[in-house]
């Protein structure tokens, strides 16, 4: 471990490095007085520095040092076994679920992008509802966090989709047979609403603050299974003169979101807007926030119009084939395209 990684004041850090204290080991058997003399600070300050170094060292020393397996390591085999048992969050559009490998995956960051009106917010609300499908009915029985930056979250719409969801669930047989009636009658729209935690972020500072706060919030509520940010882009597309600052902030935010997804077994869904990009002599639609942001997600789903139909396309994924599937949005939320037509004919 190097001295530059220690949480110290930059001036102290610079003095330590120039006096030769580059690694933590160089603090071994050192008295505060010696250190104070060597780097020219008061002995109290030197003692503080040593305390920091000792504490860091104690934490390091406690971590188990196995032959190959260091702290926090998992083998691919463990991960595969874990993944097989992990339930996914369905979208209620079977075609979309198929190309997503069964739904939105937990522990991963999924970015959803598309033109205005394509249904990003609708998909977000649908997922916030679907994550709550009880375990008895094959769902996760979780809770959702909805971070709204655009003000597009409509409670009326959530009610509609929740009602439709309850209707749909009536067709699904209950896995534990003894209380079929019970688990259907238990479903209430109000419960669906009370299990969505809604945050409204009005500028980018608030947005970052909310994401930083998530750790504490989720620790208190371990049933949170999905975090939806709708949209991650909005505040970062305006009033940003310092583009380098924007890249740094976005980079830091994406690392935090990934850590949240990993640590708390939640799915993270980020909505993104589109922009035009000049490439190959013509302007093409591309997702906003630029090149470095494009690495911020595990999976990316691009929603687009094809004729009169909405389509979803897997643009990036480490394990899924790139493929596209149609979906449709009705009063009851997201569903398959065919079913929609049947309703129209009836």
């Amino acid at each position: 471990m190097e001295t530059i990684c220690l949480p110290l004041a930059p001036s102290h850090r610079a003095r330590l490095v120039s006096a030769g204290y580059r690694t933590l080991d160089s603090f071994n058997n050192l008295s505060p007085l010696d250190l104070a003399r060597d780097i020219g600070v008061s002995s109290e300050e030197a003692l503080d520095i040593l305390k920091v170094a000792w504490r860091t060292k104690a934490i390091d020393g406690n971590s188990p040092k196995g032959a190959n397996l260091l702290a926090g390591a998992k083998t691919a085999w463990d991960l595969l076994c874990e993944e097989k048992t992990m339930k996914r969050i369905v979208t209620f559009c079977e075609d979309l679920d198929v190309i997503l490998g069964g739904g939105i995956c937990r522990k991963e960051v999924t970015e959803v992008g598309g033109v205005p009106g394509i249904g990003k917010t609708q998909l977000g609300i649908q997922l916030a509802i679907n994550v709550q499908i009880p375990v008895d009915l094959g769902g996760l029985g979780g809770q959702a966090i909805y971070i709204d930056t655009e003000g597009s979250f409509m409670v009326e719409r959530v009610c509609q989709i929740a009602k439709a969801c309850i209707e749909k669930l009536k067709d699904i047989p209950c896995t534990s047979e003894r209380k079929v009636e019970e688990c259907h009658t238990k479903l209430k729209v109000d419960d669906f609403l009370s299990n969505i935690f809604y945050f409204r972020a009005c500028n980018y500072t608030e947005q970052i603050a909310v994401i930083n706060y998530m750790d504490k919030f989720i620790e208190e509520r371990d049933k949170v299974k999905i975090i939806i940010v709708d949209s991650v882009t909005f505040h970062f597309r305006q009033d940003f003169e310092d583009l380098a600052l924007r890249t740094r902030l976005l980079g830091g935010m994406s690392q935090k979101l990934m850590r949240l997804a990993e640590e708390y077994d939640t799915a993270v869904v980020l909505m993104n807007q589109v922009t035009t990009k000049f490439s190959g002599g013509s302007f093409q639609l591309a997702l906003a926030l630029g090149e470095s942001w494009s690495h911020a997600c595990t999976n990316r789903v691009v929603l687009y119009w094809n004729g009169d139909n909405r389509f979803g396309y897997i643009d990036k994924s480490p394990s899924l084939q790139s493929a596209s599937a149609p979906f449709s949005i009705t009063t009851g939320g997201i569903c398959n395209l065919e079913r929609n037509k049947r309703i129209k004919m009836a």
Binding site: L80, Q255, P318
Partner: peptide
């Protein structure tokens, strides 16, 4: 560092 490891893909 970017949550992109996929054990499923490794298995494939």
């Amino acid at each position: 560092t970017c949550n992109s490891f996929s054990s499923k893909r490794i298995a494939q």
